Amino acid sequence: MPKIKLGQRPQSFKRVVKFKMLDGAEASIEVSYKYRTRTEFGAFIDEIAAAAKAERPEGDDFSVAAIWEKIGSGNADYIMQAVDGWNLDEEFTRENVQQLADELPAAVIAIIDSYRDAITQGRLGN
């Protein structure tokens, strides 16, 4: 068992994130997350919330497609700030994260949830 030594924080940590595919099969992606302390994570979430609030559309125009586009874009922004790589054949780019959010939303939610759980609770798994 490793000895705990405070103040020696890692740059990143890896997790295998599991999620359900559209057909119900289980899939996984190994993700390398950027390390943050709980306090730093709180500031990160504050920044994400402030950015989302600032980007709220004004007016009465309602479009479900625009809402889903905005959610996918917001998820991609979050992941680009929380993750520094993955084990997919596709390169880890914002465009590919956006495509993942559009094609497999369960994967993106699992990546976001896994990061939150790891930082705030130190839990393994989903």
Results as ranks from 00 to 15, higher is better:
residue 62 F to C: 12
residue 9 R to P: 00
residue 75 N to L: 04
residue 51 A to D: 14
residue 1 M to H: 04
residue 17 V to C: 01
residue 105 P to S: 07
residue 94 R to V: 05
residue 99 Q to Y: 00
residue 117 D to P: 01
residue 57 P to F: 00
residue 104 L to A: 11
residue 1 M to V: 11
residue 61 D to M: 01
residue 89 D to G: 08
residue 35 Y to E: 15
residue 39 T to Y: 05
residue 66 A to Q: 11
residue 94 R to G: 05
residue 49 A to H: 08
residue 46 D to E: 09
residue 69 E to F: 01
residue 111 I to A: 03
residue 68 W to P: 00
residue 96 N to Y: 00
residue 110 A to L: 00
residue 76 A to Q: 04
residue 80 M to C: 06
residue 21 M to I: 10
residue 125 G to K: 14
residue 70 K to R: 10
residue 57 P to R: 05
residue 42 G to W: 09
residue 75 N to W: 06
residue 18 K to E: 04
residue 49 A to E: 15
residue 124 L to I: 15
residue 29 I to H: 07
residue 1 M to N: 02
residue 25 A to Q: 13
residue 46 D to F: 01
residue 90 E to R: 13
residue 110 A to Q: 02
residue 57 P to K: 04
residue 33 Y to C: 04
residue 29 I to A: 07
residue 67 I to C: 08
residue 120 T to L: 05
residue 31 V to S: 05
residue 85 G to C: 10
residue 119 I to Q: 03
residue 115 Y to F: 13
residue 26 E to L: 07
residue 12 S to G: 06
residue 114 S to H: 09
residue 95 E to C: 04
residue 59 G to K: 03
residue 39 T to M: 07
residue 32 S to Q: 14
residue 102 D to Q: 08
residue 122 G to C: 13
residue 101 A to Q: 02
residue 39 T to E: 14
residue 80 M to A: 02
residue 107 A to K: 10
residue 54 A to Y: 02
residue 44 F to P: 09
residue 124 L to N: 15
residue 88 L to H: 04
residue 42 G to Q: 15
residue 115 Y to S: 06
residue 82 A to S: 09
residue 3 K to F: 06
residue 13 F to V: 03
residue 90 E to P: 00
residue 81 Q to T: 13
residue 88 L to A: 05
residue 46 D to P: 03
residue 103 E to H: 02
residue 64 V to E: 11
residue 74 G to Y: 04
residue 114 S to C: 14
residue 49 A to K: 15
residue 68 W to D: 14
residue 54 A to R: 12
residue 30 E to P: 02
